[in-house]
Nucleic acid binder design. Structure first.
Lengths: 325, 325
DNA sequence: CATATTAGTCGAATCGTTTCGATTATTAAT
DNA sequence: ATTAATAATCGAAACGATTCGACTAATATG
C-alpha cells in the first residue's frame, strides 16, 4: 500500500505538506495541491486510519453491544445507529453478546482496546460496575437505566404506551380488559403493567386481578393465557408483547371467538408478523429507529463535547389495525 | 490511559520486556512476569490495538457490508458472522448501505482505510470493478457470485431448494402446481424457477405456463397472484418467498379455499412470521447461520493464508408445517 | 574449567500519521 | 526600499505498540 511518504516523494514535497494539503490544516499553494492530488490518484493512496487514530486519539469508531441481533427489536435500532453514525463519519463495531454477561464484558474490553470513541449499550448485558470502571468512555444505554450520571440513557415510554393502548380500548367501549404478560419483576416488564393499571384508574374502571395472566412470553404462552379465561371472558386483551398477542389471537380462532367482533386485542412492539395475521393486530409501536438515531446523536455529541450526558424518554405510537372494533 | 511505557516504569523493566511477557514472544523470568502482571493490574493497563495494528499490519477487524439490516434474511447471517469472528478474536464493523451502490463504495473505502483484514459482502451492492481494484483484501461474497477468482463465494442452493419443495408437493399428490414469483431476470430470482421446472420434468408433469404468475414480491403481490387463478385453480402453490406465500394464504382464506384441505402452499425463506400464520406455512429454509459462519471461516482462513479462495453452495432445508397435506 | 548455549533483558528502529516550531518565499504596509 | 505580515514548506518529535540485534547472566557441554 502506498503511504503518505510515497505520495510526498512522488509529488516532490515533504510529508507535512501532503498532510496539510489533504486535511486543509495549513495553507498550500494551489499548484502543489494539484501535484499532490495527482500523486494520490496515481498511487491509489488511502490514508491509514489506524496511524491517524494513534496520533489524534480519535478512531471514528463506536462500539454497539447488543444481546441478540435476531430478536426483532434490534435490527432496526442497529440500522438507525449505523446510519446516523455514518452521517458523522463514524463506523460501527457490532458485538452480539448472546445475552451472556461474560461475553459482554470481554466485548467491552476489546472495544476499549480498539480505542472506540464511544459505546452504545442496548439492553442490560453489561455488569454495572464494568461500566462504572470504564467511565472515561462516552456511553449511552438504550432501554436500560444504569443510573450512572455519566451514562446517557434513551428509553421508550412503555408505561405511556400501555396507557394509550388501554385507553383506546376503553374508548372503544371495552370494560373487562385482560392483561396477559410474562412474569413481572420490578424493571422494564413492570412499566407496561403500571400503564395498564393507571389507564383503568383514570377511567374509573376498578382493577380486577382475575383478568391478569402471567405466562411465558411466547406464542404458546399467549395461547394458553387466552384459553384460561373460561367462565366470564374479557371483552378485550392487552398483551405484554406481540408474540403473546398472536398466541391469544390463535386461541380465539380455535375457540370460535371472533376478532374484533367478540373481543379486541392489542399487542406491544409492532413486530413484522402482526401486520400479516388475520385480522392484522393493533399494537404499540416502539420508536426503534428514533431510539437508535437519537442515542447515536447523543453519543457523538458527548464525544465531541457538544453536550452533556442526559436521559430521554421517547413516546411510543399506537398502531391501529383491525383487531379492535 | 496507561501505556506500555507506564507499565514498564512501574515494573522497573524495559518496554520490550513487558511486550515479551504479555505476548509470550520471548522468555521472561517468572518473577519479573509477576511484577509486570501486577503493574498492569494496578494501572488498569489495556494494550492499544491501533498501535499494535499499525506495527503488525493486522487489525483483527473484518468489515461486513450488507444492503439492509431490516430485511429478515440479514440479522441471522450477521449474527453468525459476528460469533464466528469472535471465535478467532476478530471484531466486525457493520455497514448497511441502504442498497445504494454509492454508499457501498464509500463504505468499502472507509473499511480499507481502517485496515480491516478482510471483507464479507452480502448481496450485490458493491460495483464489481471496485472489488476488482481492491483485490488485495481477502473477500468473500454471500449470495452473489462476482466471478472473480480471488473472491470466495458462498451461496444457498436455491434451485435445489425449489426442486425439493416442488418434489414434496408432487409426492403429496399435487399435480397442478402454480408458481408465484416476482419479475424474473436472469440472476438469483431465476434459479428457483429452474428448480420448479426441473422437479416437474423429473416427475413427468408437463410445464404449464398458465400456472406461473409474476407479481410484486410482497404480501399484496402474493394475494393478487392467488386471486388471479379463477377458472381451473391449481391444487398447490409454490411461492418465490414467504411474504408472497402469506399473501396467497390470505387470498385463499378470503375466497374460502381451505388450506391444506383444498390447496397446499409452500413458501421460501422461512421468515419468523410464517410459523405464526394459520395454518403455519411450510417453507424452504435458507441455511443463514451456516452461510454466515462458513463465510467467516473461509475469510479468516484466507487472511491467515490457511486456505485459498473457494466457492461453496449450501443446501436449503424444507421445513414442513401445516400448509400441505 | 573453558566454552558454547540458552535465558533474560534492553535500546533503538519502525509502523504511517499529525502537529508544531522553524525557515524561507511572497506580499502588504509604511 | 525597508520592514512587517503572512503564505508555503519543511524537519523532527510524537502517538503506543512490536521486533530485532546486542548484551549480560545463567546453565549446559565436553
Amino acid at each position: 500500500m502506498a503511504t503518505i511518504k510515497d505520495v510526498a516523494k512522488a509529488a516532490g514535497v515533504s510529508i507535512s505538506t501532503v498532510s496539510a494539503a489533504l486535511n486543509g490544516t495549513a495553507p498550500v499553494k494551489e499548484s502543489t495541491r494539484q501535484k499532490i492530488l495527482e500523486a494520490c490518484e496515481a498511487l491509489g493512496y488511502r490514508p491509514n486510519r489506524l496511524a491517524r487514530g494513534l496520533k489524534t486519539k480519535r478512531s471514528y469508531t463506536i462500539g454497539v453491544i447488543i444481546p441478540e441481533l435476531t430478536n426483532p427489536f434490534f435490527p432496526e435500532v442497529v440500522r438507525a445507529i449505523e446510519h446516523k453514525a455514518k452521517e458523522y463519519n463514524y463506523n460501527t463495531i457490532l458485538c452480539d453478546t448472546d445475552d451472556d454477561p461474560e461475553v459482554g464484558l470481554s466485548d467491552l474490553h476489546l472495544l476499549i482496546e480498539k480505542q472506540v470513541d464511544g459505546i452504545i449499550l442496548i439492553g442490560g448485558v453489561i455488569p454495572r460496575d464494568a461500566i462504572l470502571s470504564s467511565r472515561r468512555l462516552p456511553t449511552v444505554a438504550i432501554e436500560k437505566d444504569f443510573n450512572i450520571p455519566q451514562v446517557s440513557c434513551v428509553m421508550a415510554d412503555l408505561m405511556g404506551g400501555a396507557y394509550e393502548a388501554v385507553s383506546h380500548l376503553i374508548g372503544m367501549g371495552c370494560r373487562r380488559i385482560a392483561y396477559i404478560t410474562c412474569r413481572m419483576g420490578k424493571g422494564v416488564v413492570y412499566r407496561r403493567f403500571e400503564g395498564y393499571k393507571l389507564a383503568l384508574k383514570d377511567n374509573q374502571i376498578p382493577f380486577d386481578a382475575s383478568l391478569v395472566r402471567e405466562s411465558s412470553p411466547d406464542f404458546e404462552g399467549g395461547c394458553e393465557a387466552m384459553k384460561s379465561f373460561k367462565e366470564v371472558p374479557p371483552d378485550a386483551v392487552f398483551s405484554y408483547n406481540d408474540v403473546m398477542a398472536m398466541g391469544a389471537l390463535k386461541a380465539c380462532s380455535l375457540m370460535g371467538v371472533r376478532i374484533p367482533g367478540d373481543m379486541s386485542i392489542v399487542g406491544f412492539d409492532d413486530i413484522d408478523a402482526v401486520s400479516f395475521t388475520s385480522p392484522p393486530l393493533s399494537t404499540v409501536a416502539l420508536p426503534k429507529q428514533e431510539m437508535g438515531s437519537l442515542a447515536t446523536e447523543i453519543l457523538i455529541n458527548t464525544i465531541l463535547k457538544k453536550e452533556k450526558p442526559r436521559n430521554v424518554s421517547l413516546s411510543t405510537k399506537l398502531v391501529i389495525r383491525k383487531s379492535c372494533k
